[in-house]
Design a protein around this nucleic acid. Structure first.
Lengths: 210, 210
DNA sequence: CAAAATACCATACATTTGTATGGCTAATGT
DNA sequence: ACATTAGCCATACAAATGTATGGTATTTTG
């Protein structure tokens, strides 16, 4: 089962992955040939046939750029969680991804967004629960009414954002909670990003009460 | 900024997304033409130029299948919602899709699954709220512990599924609620499908208290 | 209303792309 | 010693692919 790749095959596979990542479509035989200095496409084709035989790619030979990656599904399905959101402590961003989520083959993360796993019941006033994954886009300006993840003196919050003149108000989804008003008296205030959505995996193993 | 797509453009974009998802590489102009019954590739090319002008794709015209998706900036893809889930009334499946959700393009709905929009607060014992979208897969056998959407005499429920011998128990996420035991006394009992996940859009417009 | 955009078509053309065949060398295993 | 495999080449060929140009009809927009 463990088919070992030769050095050349490994490099070609890596090139296909990178190419596809960057351009959005797989390389043609010519492009692979050029990358590796081959004067001939047949050479490339033989390497691709080897890769297909070993199950790493699937080809439609009759079709231009008909190279499909068949890497372990984990590559695509398991995404790193780069931090945790919880009240009382700042949003923790791990230096390297520590935890991962298994998202049932349905979630792909755009480059600029990242995932935060919700820890504890601290965000339940926003109807977000332990184990939920929130999708945060750090590169957009929050619009009034959007939910943002923010860090301030007393910790991290996930609340609706309203800017009124110089003052920013952070309102909970749950009307029982009093809004936070951010003004000059705050020394630390930083918008982590806009919460674009939440995803909750419905796996039996998940435990929402821990 | 909000460039609106025409119906044709939207459909073509969706086809490109699905094609790429399924095959692993983008479609050629011919393949798009064939899909939509066009007798001509120039027609397709014009649509692609429109999509590129609106920033949704990026093309390398000189290259076969040179279509790159640029959905990151336009995070949302509109998908049809085919029904509603609410307690008290059976799960309603619209004959044709009526409503739509804007899902982040990162959420890829498996072909066999469908979306139900949650209406009212009736499912809040499962921590699912008004306006949430649940992703239901009807073609898999529920495993003990999974959350299912089911219809029974008293209406539709979304609860955890446990089969013990001949008896099926439907347990709420919230321990305060008493489990439902399904036995011979039930005349109607039908599993709609397994809830694979939920997605909640964090749009300002959404109103969770209606 | 006139201009622009949308949405199609036909035909022609140049490249790109992948395939097929055959041959050559070096390393490896039996 | 001999077969096998990996790795590379040249040449020829057919099909797929994208482009260019010019046309028609309808709808939308300023």
């Amino acid at each position: 089962m463990t088919k070992i790749l030769t050095e050349v095959q490994r490099k070609i596979l890596q090139f296909i992955i990178d190419f596809r990542d960057e351009k959005g479509w797989p390389p043609s035989l010519s492009e692979i040939a050029e990358e590796f200095g081959y004067k001939n496409r047949s050479t490339v084709r033989e390497h691709l046939q080897a890769l297909e035989k070993k199950g790493l790619i699937q080809r439609d030979e009759k079709v231009a750029r008909g190279i499909d990656l068949r890497l372990d599904d984990h590559m695509f399905v398991t995404r790193p969680i780069i931090g945790e959101a919880a009240a009382g402590s700042p949003v923790t961003i791990y230096p390297g991804a520590i935890d991962t989520v298994d998202l049932p083959n349905m979630i792909k993360i755009p480059k600029e967004s990242f995932l935060l796993k919700v820890k504890g019941q601290s965000l339940k006033d926003a109807y977000i629960f332990n184990g939920d994954v929130i999708i945060v886009n750090p590169n957009v300006e929050p619009v009034n009414g959007q939910i943002v993840a923010a860090v301030l003196d007393e910790g991290a919050v996930v609340k609706r954002y309203f800017k009124k003149g110089k003052v920013i108000e952070l309102v909970s989804e749950n009307p029982e909670f009093v809004p936070i008003t951010v003004d000059e008296s705050y020394r630390h205030f930083h918008i982590v990003g806009v919460v674009v959505g939440i995803y909750r995996s419905m796996e039996a193993k998940s435990n929402r009460y821990s």
